[in-house]
């Protein structure tokens, strides 16, 4: 073939492989905040629509300096930790049982499917009657909210554990408990952790609902109070705290994932 009829093959691969670019996320945040600041200062965004980001920051600083931040954060964190710990641990246990036993699976999967879509907030009055308006109902609400997504994620993860690994365990005469502990649980860990990401975010969402009833201190109570006073600065300061909490929880899970799931490709 003559050289003149030769032409380079045009490249048509590439794309469809998004990767995260450093600093872009931060830039978007900063840009949005700057626009809000400029808009509120110039009056283009009214005080009724959005608070000044700098005022929100001031409110946050005051909250910190007055020590109120920790007075609110303390109870909220303990509610979050106790509630999520109960919900997640019971959820993981039940999820594993569903993943392992036919009768439990047949009995509980429809039940979990039935309670999953219930807005847990709707059950708050019921929880108040069962557990009182003290910490009990708050723990219960958060625990219940984290329980269902954890169960679903866990039994899905157990279902996805490589069966040949379990057969391998059996072929080497490993005990049932050893197989569960050394093969099923570590194998399900990636699924359980990604489920936890979701359930802990739900726990933070439910924190506000849990603190609707009978909470004098707490980030949720603080936000609700700000809402009822139409105090946008405090409202946004509270929301900021929740967002930060979400980022921290996500980062902690990321850390756990990196430690526990080093073995993944």
């Amino acid at each position: 073939m003559s050289e003149s009829s030769a032409k380079p093959v045009s490249f048509r691969g590439g794309g469809f492989a998004p990767r995260s670019v450093r600093w872009i996320g931060v830039t978007v945040f900063v840009a949005l905040i700057l626009i809000a600041e400029w808009g509120t200062r110039s009056g283009w965004i009214s005080a009724l629509t959005l608070p000044k980001p700098s005022d929100v920051l001031d409110t946050f600083r005051e909250l910190y300096e007055s020590g109120l931040l920790f007075k609110h954060l303390g109870p909220s964190l303990s509610r979050l930790i106790v509630g999520a710990a109960i919900g997640a641990s019971v959820g993981i246990s039940v999820g594993v049982l569903i993943g392992l036993f036919s009768y439990i699976r047949s009995g509980l999967v429809p039940l979990v499917a039935a309670i999953f879509p219930i807005p847990k907030i709707a059950l708050l009055p019921l929880f108040v009657i069962w557990f009182g308006i003290g910490e009990g109902s708050k723990y219960a609400l958060i625990a219940f909210g984290t329980f269902t997504p954890t169960v679903v994620a866990t039994y899905g993860a157990v279902d996805n554990v490589d069966r040949t690994l379990i057969r391998m365990g059996q072929s080497f005469g490993l005990s049932w408990w050893s197989i569960v502990r050394k093969i099923v649980l570590p194998g399900a860990m990636p699924g359980i952790l990604s489920g936890l990401r979701i359930s802990l975010a739900i726990a933070i969402i439910l924190l506000v609902a849990a603190e609707m009833l009978g909470a004098q201190y707490g980030i949720g109570a603080y936000i609700l109070e700000a809402g009822s006073l139409y105090d946008l600065e405090r409202l946004f300061a509270g929301v900021l705290i929740l967002s930060l909490l979400g980022v921290i929880v996500s980062a902690v899970i990321g850390l756990i994932e990196r430690r526990l799931l080093r073995w993944r490709i």
Binding site: P125, M212, L213, G214, A215, A221
Partner: peptide
């Protein structure tokens, strides 16, 4: 007093009846 926010009148009536407030 310990002011206890319960959001709704209905919730307060329930809490008063059950002696939680």
């Amino acid at each position: 007093l310990q002011f206890t926010p319960l959001q709704k009148v209905g919730a307060i009536i329930g809490a008063m009846k059950s002696g939680q407030v």
